[in-house]
Every structure is written in C-alpha cells, then in structure tokens.
Nucleic acid binder design. Structure first.
Length: 206
DNA sequence: ACATTAAGTGATT
DNA sequence: AATCACTTAATGT
C-alpha cells in the first residue's frame, strides 16, 4: 500500500499531540455518519477506516479505505469552513484514530511544509483511486471491481479466507446478490477461488 | 425433523 | 446488470 508517511517536523508533532484526541473505535462502529458536522480530521494510527457513499434506499457504495498513516481526504477538502459530511466513515477493523480539530488546518498548511505535503499527498492518492473507481463503474467492469474488493479484504484480514456472505459483498458494492453469486461462480470455475457458505478462499491464481 | 438463511439458476426486462 | 421467482444446500433449534 502506498502510504503518505507522516514525517512531520518536531514542532508540528508537539502541537499535534497537544491539540488532537486519540480515540479508539470498535470494528463496525460508525466514526462519521452522513450529514454529521465535521469537527475533526481523522488520521488513522492503526486499523482501517472504510469510507462509503450511501443512498437513501439503504444501498451503499464503497469509495476507499484509509490505512495507517493516512488521513481522510474527504475531510481535508472541506475543512476550511465547517461542513456536513456527504459520506460515511466506518471502522473496517478496530481502529485507533488521531482526531485533529478542523480549526488548525489552514494555519498548519501555511506554517508547516510537511503538513501541507501530507495533506496534498493523501488528496492526490485518493483522487487517483476515485478516478479508477469511476472508470470501473462507468464501463461497468463489475468483475474487476469484485476482484479489487476481494484482494483488499485479503490484505486487511492478512488471510486468503474471507468470511462474508454474497449478500454482504453485494451490499457494499451497491449491487444485487445474484450478480455477485454469478461472478463468484465464474471466478471459481476459472480456478481463482473456492466458495463455501459464508466464506471465500482466494487462491494464488488471483 | 423442521425452520431459517445462504447460495445457485433460468427467465425477463 | 437488475429483478423476480424458484430450487437446492447448509446451518441452527
């Protein structure tokens, strides 16, 4: 994973530690609900944060994951004035977060070159990921999206075994269960994985 | 053994 | 690719 490594200068580190909150969220808990006011910018210390877009009908579309050492790009972009979130951030695993009050953002960008670089790097990284996601959706490459999804789950779980139902996968990808079942079946026939109930085993041929 | 839930499949739009 | 209707298989009580 490409990580915007926060190698901040000493003064920034001390200010950062002074003003930010260190909070823990259990797996599955909602860190930022849609419509919530953004008061802090999260930086992931450990674990993974899942950021997705939700539809009124209850469907969702996964946008990107935030790994340790990364900040949430979406919150950086709307930190100059206090705004409401268009997206949902959930704890994919148990996560340790550093919450920085949004008020410091513009000041730090001018004051600390390393902070500016960090913010730019994470925005750039996410922008590229979103372009890729947009491309796959626009050209209806659901099969590729599914493979991306599975590979990510593999790296998060650091295991080739994924414990999810087809229904759960379909929901996260904003599609229907039957479509996922069929795609998975085809991947199984291609010898890329093995299917079990509530469990998928990825093979090295992925 | 029975009920419930996950997964597989064909037909239709 | 989505939805529906239906079947089959696995799992819980």
């Amino acid at each position: 994973m490409t990580t915007a490594s926060p190698s901040f200068e000493a003064p920034l580190v001390s200010v950062l530690e002074a003003v930010s909150l260190r909070r823990h969220f259990a797996e599955g808990s909602v860190v930022l609900a849609q419509g919530a006011e953004i008061t802090h910018v999260p930086i992931v210390v450990s674990g993974t944060l899942k950021v997705s877009l939700t539809e009124v009908g209850g469907r969702e579309l996964l946008l990107y994951y935030v790994q340790p050492g990364e900040g949430c790009a979406m919150t950086f972009t709307c930190c100059l004035k206090t705004q409401h979130s268009d997206i949902v951030a959930e704890a994919e695993t148990d996560v340790e977060l550093l919450l920085v009050p949004v008020g410091y953002m513009s000041e730090w960008i001018q004051q600390f070159p390393s902070w500016k670089a960090f913010v730019m790097d994470t925005i750039h990284l996410r922008f590229k990921e979103l372009l890729k996601a947009l491309e796959l959706i626009a050209f209806q490459r659901l099969d590729e999206r599914l493979i991306h999804f599975l590979k990510h789950k593999q790296s998060v779980a650091s295991s080739t075994v994924i414990n999810l139902s087809h229904e759960q996968i379909a929901h996260e990808m904003g599609t229907s269960r039957e479509v996922i079942s069929r795609l998975l079946k085809r991947l199984e026939h291609d010898g890329k994985l093995l299917l079990y109930r509530h469990q998928i085993k990825l093979l090295s041929t992925m």
